[in-house]
């Protein structure tokens, strides 16, 4: 059983997650500008400058708003991300390694549902509320296959402890014999962060949806929070499917960073390939295609595990 990281990691974790999210957001800005000519790389600092702009901007309120309820929702977004990341091993040692780590991660992403819904409800504005509701529908669509994907990885390791899941991949990464679960987890990482192809809750068609009425620091926490969620979701794919810190030559922590960056890069690519999906259409795909596929994947893994005994 891998031991947990020293206590200072509790302080470092949120900072590391912020840096990771910021780098990912910067890479996304560069990628978006890539077809716009030279100097695209300079946009890497854009997210940070935008953060400064929002930081000194006036917070704004709407009439008859439930401001504090909305702000609790907004605050929950980064909190959920950091708490979810607490069970992700950086290297081979996570900040905490509870016996039910996989379930813990799942619970924290469900916290984000409440968060976005509250953020959409708070401002007393129709578009914002529509955005909040969209995320609930999105949760229903992506969560069921995602839960099955997480279960599959736990099944392969015969443990819900993230450390045990990593240990079980010393020989063979789970992605090799659980490709469906891995793919579903990637989609879910984007979906739980209401980002990219799953950004419909903050859709352009409803003027920014759940974020439409938030300005200043409120907006910063909400928008930065989703990048944190995305980073946490991507980072969690590494211990679950990509062998965690295992790898030749490089130290374990560096392998974790490299693999997380690769997962994030795949997600950024996905965003540029695919338009924003609407849940009234995606629900069908999620439940009629992805659920049976992940069930089948879980069955295969279960048979293999039983056969090994």
């Amino acid at each position: 059983m891998a031991e947990t990281a020293p206590l200072w990691a509790v302080v470092v974790l949120p900072l590391a997650l912020v840096v990771l999210a910021g780098v990912a957001a910067g890479a996304d800005a560069v990628l978006s500008a890539a077809h716009g000519g030279a100097g695209a790389w300079r946009r890497a600092a854009d997210p940070w400058r935008e953060a400064v702009r929002l930081l000194v901007q006036q917070p704004r309120r709407t009439r008859a708003a439930d401001r504090w309820l909305g702000r609790i929702g907004i605050g929950l977004v980064p909190v959920a991300a950091v708490l979810a990341a607490a069970v992700v091993p950086w290297g081979l040692r996570p900040v905490t390694d509870p016996a039910v780590g996989v379930v813990w991660f799942n619970a924290m992403e469900a916290l984000a549902w409440a968060a976005v819904w509250l953020a959409g409800w708070g401002p007393n504005s129709a578009f914002s509320l529509v955005g909040g509701y969209r995320f609930l529908a999105q949760g229903l669509a992506y969560e069921l296959p995602h839960m099955l994907a997480l279960t599959t990885a736990a099944l392969g390791a015969e443990s819900l402890r993230v450390g045990a899941v990593v240990a079980a991949q010393r020989g063979l990464w789970f992605v090799v014999w659980m490709p469906v679960a891995f793919a579903v987890h990637l989609l879910s990482a984007a979906a739980l962060a209401f980002w990219g192809p799953f950004a419909h809750p903050l859709g352009r068609d409803v003027a920014g949806g759940a974020a439409a009425e938030w300005s200043g620091p409120d907006r910063l926490v909400l928008l930065a929070g989703r990048w944190l969620l995305l980073a946490a979701g991507a980072a969690f794919a590494v211990p679950l499917f990509l062998g965690g810190g295992h790898g030749p030559l490089l130290p374990a922590w560096l392998w974790t960073v490299v693999k997380t960056a690769a997962v994030l890069a795949a997600l950024l690519g996905l965003r540029h390939l695919v338009p924003t999906v609407r849940m009234d259409r995606y629900m069908e795909v999620a439940w009629l295609v992805l659920v049976p596929l992940t069930l089948l994947q879980a069955l295969v893994v279960a048979v293999v595990v039983l056969g090994r005994r």
């Binding site: 309120r61 009439r63 708003a65 007393n124 504005s125 300005s215």
Partner: peptide, 14 residues
């Protein structure tokens, strides 16, 4: 810049 206190904001869209 702006002085402290939030903007009165709009009536929302409702």
């Amino acid at each position: 810049g702006w002085r402290s206190g939030s903007a009165p904001g709009g009536p929302g869209r409702q």
